[in-house]
Design a protein around this nucleic acid. Structure first.
Lengths: 346, 346
DNA sequence: TAGGGCTGCTAAATTGATTTAGCAAGAAGA
DNA sequence: TCTTCTTGCTAAATCAATTTAGCAGCCCTA
């Protein structure tokens, strides 16, 4: 008993009276190697009995493949946000019998190169670069020789990438309000830089474009577009508060993310407004808090887990270009008919 | 140009005109190997110039060490909760030049054994088993031969473990209210099973014991202990609502976690109570939402990142027994003087 | 001037799996 | 009867590192 030495191919060979070659051939069932049915059975039995598992180090050395993929992120691991991205990556990698090395650069882009370097030193077969917020980034040139896939990111050098389909989501979210009869709609969380500079965001532009397109289809524009920076609860709170005291009070608002919506809820509740009776709210992200709010927040989910899965498939399976992953609309209780039109039907 | 072959020890040897042996000796600067100063310099220069990096697969094979640690968790990766735990693990592992393999079992304890097995198959040098909520678990016997450290968990078999110091935190949190003058205090989120059954929680008992001890020091007991199951916002909301309409309304409440406190906030705000003027609230966890609430929630932080760091140090550095990590008290704006005693000083 | 010790370096074994090249024995064909 | 296939199997090379054992040369000494 106790922990004896690892079981090696040689042990299985000895136990069966065959050579290492034969055992290897059988366990990997190479076509063309004509071993007797009897030998096959004996080897399989012995391997199972001894609990033989090939040493991955030895395999890597011989085959030049590590069956390892590197996942490099800015701060995905840390945030409540996108740990789902990791889950997707991990899960799919496991299905494809790969191991995932995880490293983080934090907010500092300077750390990207050394982190990539470390993964290269570990001989990763491929690398996924994932970001918390979809941005355009530069992939350091050291990464030549390995395949790189961008997750929630894009690059001027055109590496294959996975992004959420924000334009469709924008349309769908706007339609939540429009279909309920709203025509006086305000956007909380406008951002010129995010909408136009891919270095700030590659997706927000599409998100806004989708919203605008849906409004245009029914011939309206936003009542107002309130810029907020950054998209945190306190900003949503202040924007909402000001709006309620302003001249143009909408019947529905679209928040650029759930944290802004969270702040807007606080301001509405303090002012005694009821959601969705007095005001409808929709949003983007499907952050954890969206389900805690009362009433629950209707929002367009960023499908982090799905995106993570796709990234692994793209990395290992091959393929180029941008891949858009659909964003599900999570319908909760924050949308109602506009005030004063209780009997409205679309 | 392009990706030429990997640089190996043999390349460095050839470039310097020395043998692989000498190069290896120099790069690992073995004591006792008396290579000339000139040779040392040449080798170092050549290695740097060629960008030589030892192949980890070859090293693992030869040395029998993979410099890899496995991190197996129930659902840490996924939750907003404890991804900080991973960050701590990752960061410390990197400092110690180790790679981390991450795997998840989900809620299903049946998956633990196969997941451990997969890590063993990859020849991890050691394994950390981390849980989202601190519980007692069984470590499958397969894990013999590798060192296992429990993170936010303990086991009947006495593996070394890292846990938060909940008793001290319980005392400190209670004192937040006591020192502000509160004597009518209610607990939201009592749980008999969590307090007494280590399979449900190993820490909640200590947390409650700390609270009780602090109250006892000033000669009081809880006004009421409201059981809630599970500890989610809706439970806190309902408990608070009922309490406000009940006979025994406290001046301060202690919630067993931040999500309960979140629900309690919602009920208080709906009822028109002001925090901290009309009611003080303290809690445990320091979930992300604790900082979003208005006013910010005073809470005892579970130091996930610190715990992750300690786990790696414990795994790699050796040591036995339970290690308690202090829980910082995060003071925000949810505690004030009890209603009607504005001038009170302790 | 042979023996001992030191200095500077290296050949070869080792780690575990895969793979190439090919051996021996029997069957089939000429 | 000899050649040519097939069948069933294996020896040895290979991957890139580390490490053991030890080889020359030179100096010093008795």
């Amino acid at each position: 008993m106790g922990s004896s030495r690892r079981v090696t191919l040689a042990d299985v060979a000895e136990r069966t009276g065959l050579s290492k070659t034969s055992v290897s051939l059988i366990l990997n069932n190479r076509p063309g190697s004509r071993l007797s049915a009897d030998a096959v059975l004996r080897v399989q039995a012995a391997a199972a009995e001894l609990g033989y598992r090939p040493d991955p180090a030895a395999q890597s050395l011989r085959l030049g493949k590590t069956r390892t993929i590197g996942f490099l992120s800015d701060e995905v691991t840390v945030t409540r946000f996108a740990s789902a991205m990791i889950r997707g990556v991990l899960d799919t990698a496991e299905q494809r019998e790969h191991t995932v090395l995880i490293a983080e650069t934090g907010r500092d882009p300077q750390k990207t190169a050394p982190a990539l370097d470390a993964m290269l030193a570990r001989r990763a077969d491929g690398i996924i670069v994932g970001l918390m917020g979809a941005k355009e980034i530069d992939v350091p040139a050291i990464a030549s020789g390995v395949r790189v896939v961008l997750l929630n990111a894009s690059s001027p050098t055109g590496e294959p990438s996975i992004l959420p389909d924000e334009e469709s989501a924008g349309r769908a979210i706007a339609r939540q309000l429009l279909d309920a009869g709203h025509r006086r709609i305000t956007l909380i969380g406008d951002s010129h830089s995010a909408a136009t500079d891919p270095r700030v965001s590659v997706t927000v532009g599409a998100r806004f474009a989708g919203l605008d397109a849906a409004l245009a289809e029914v011939g309206i524009n936003f009542l107002e577009r309130v810029p907020v920076e950054p998209w945190e609860p306190v900003g949503g709170y202040e924007a909402m508060q000001k709006m309620l005291n302003g001249p143009e009070v909408p019947t529905g608002i679209i928040c650029s993310n759930d944290r802004l919506a969270f702040g807007a809820y606080q301001a509405l509740q303090e002012a005694g407004w009821r959601i969705p009776n007095d005001m409808s709210v929709v949003s983007f992200d499907d952050d954890e808090i969206a389900s805690y709010l009362r009433p629950g927040l209707t929002t367009a989910q960023i499908p982090y887990e799905e995106m993570g899965r796709h990234a692994v498939d793209l990395l290992l399976g091959g393929g180029e270009g941008r891949h858009l992953v659909p964003m599900p609309i999570i319908i909760r209780g924050s949308v109602g008919a506009p005030r004063g039109t209780e009997g409205f039907t679309s």
